[in-house]
Design a protein around this nucleic acid. Structure first.
Lengths: 126, 126
DNA sequence: GTTCATATGTGCATACTGCATCTATCAGAA
DNA sequence: TTCTGATAGATGCAGTATGCACATATGAAC
């Protein structure tokens, strides 16, 4: 919470967006970075994007190779792995659950909330 | 990404959940911590919950006072401030936008994505 | 040969977080 | 009375994450 007035999304949003982009689209960091900027999400630093991609590779969510086929600087092409796909679908569940909790809290019970939770936790992590 | 196999949600999810819980429900940390545990979200460390609440207070999203009226240890009672409410509604927009982007990426365009973003970024930060 | 867009990265200072641990109050059991 | 357990809040530490600034390199256009 360095600055309370400027947008800043946390890593999970960045990494899951990257994974989602890679679902039907092998791409390299620069493309993904641009895609993020166009997507209507608050900006991420491109250095953070590159580091996050390397991190995702380290944890097996994506794989990459150096692409020197095109002209210009070499690109590191990323693809989603099966582990990445599995993680991503788990994340979508977690997200839906999270959103449901927020909705329930905002519109629901007047003062003291009811007891039973609606969903089980989803085991999903970066 | 300390451990890739265990659940761990980032701070924005924690802080926004806390804010949402406080929307119609003034509560203290211990209650909120329990509420989180019952909510079906992956567990947060209670120390992190307490620290996050203090942080939210520092940024003006919640206010608190020591409640010594009940028996037992004193409690720090938290309430949502107007700034917190405003932030929260902004966050809901950001969240919807984020989810839309994921959905579009997962179900959408075959290889190369279209150009126009669907939403403007929402200025929302913790 | 200088400049610009492309493409990827690192160093630093700061911030966040899980784990372990600490303090303290009070109820009820032994 | 003392002991235990639930309640209530907090901190120190080590590891990790992140924004900012900056570095490096290729190739096209001028």
């Amino acid at each position: 919470m360095a600055d309370e007035s400027k947008p800043r999304l946390h890593g999970e949003m960045l990494s899951t967006s990257l994974l989602a982009f890679l679902k039907n689209w092998s791409a390299y960091g620069y493309q993904l970075s641009q895609r993020l900027a166009e997507s209507g999400m608050p900006q991420f630093d491109s250095g953070t994007v590159y580091r996050t991609l390397r991190q995702l590779e380290k944890t097996g969510m994506v794989s990459s190779f150096w692409d020197t086929s095109a002209s210009g600087p070499a690109r590191r092409m990323y693809s989603l792995t099966q582990a990445g796909e599995i993680f991503l679908s788990g994340w979508m569940e977690t997200l839906a659950n999270y959103q449901a909790i927020l909705q329930r809290a905002l519109t629901g019970w007047a003062t003291v909330p009811p007891a039973a939770p609606a969903h089980e936790p989803v085991d999903s992590t970066l």
